[in-house]
């Protein structure tokens, strides 16, 4: 009887985590896509060598986000660990976190009236050493926001 109850609780927890986690993720993606469209006019490039003569001024900008995955995904990943291979559940998590970080960086750049962000770099780190079990990561995007003398049309 006790085993049945435990199994039921486990399935219920996983079910709730799955439902809420999926809703949150979908909402986040809709939000990200909307803001990315908004920021199309402010491109971020990872190139360092840009035309120096065309630059008016520049300033460091960065954006970061700490994100964690839900219980269901962690369970899936632990199963996947047995066989190896792609963990699709984590891919989407890191993808949306990174895009969120870029957007935050661009928001800072827009506040400065920048035309683009050059030499953009990513850094990923786990918070604390138990982070892999707790499952949260920090994603950081940084670059130099520049204003151009001749603006692209």
């Amino acid at each position: 009887m006790e085993t049945v109850l435990q199994t039921f609780t486990f399935i219920l927890t996983i079910g709730i985590a799955y439902a809420l986690g999926t809703i949150i993720e979908q909402d986040h993606y809709v939000n990200i896509q909307k803001r990315e469209k908004d920021f199309l006019s402010l491109p971020a490039v990872s190139s360092k060598s840009i035309e120096q003569d065309n630059l008016l001024d520049g300033q460091l900008v960065y954006g970061s986000v700490v994100i964690s995955h839900d219980y269901f995904k962690r369970f899936l990943a632990s199963l996947r660990n047995l066989t190896g291979g792609r963990i699709t559940a984590y891919e989407s998590l890191l993808d949306r976190a990174r895009r969120e970080a870029i957007l935050r960086m661009k928001e800072q750049a827009r506040l400065l009236g920048a035309d683009m962000v050059v030499n953009m770099r990513f850094a990923t780190s786990s918070v604390g050493d138990e982070a892999w079990t707790l499952g949260c990561f920090e994603l950081l995007a940084y670059g130099t926001a520049v204003r151009l003398k001749i603006k692209p049309t």
Binding site: I16, S64, S68, D70, A97, V127, L134, G135, E138
Partner: peptide
């Protein structure tokens, strides 16, 4: 990390998503 934000993060960990307490912590530190 702060114990308070740790508990909040533990709860948030169930459903996933951004851990705002940690984001702020690391932002301040940076």
């Amino acid at each position: 990390r702060h114990v308070g934000s740790d508990i909040a993060a533990g709860l948030k960990n169930m459903v996933g998503g951004e851990l705002k307490g940690y984001t702020k912590l690391l932002d301040d530190a940076r």
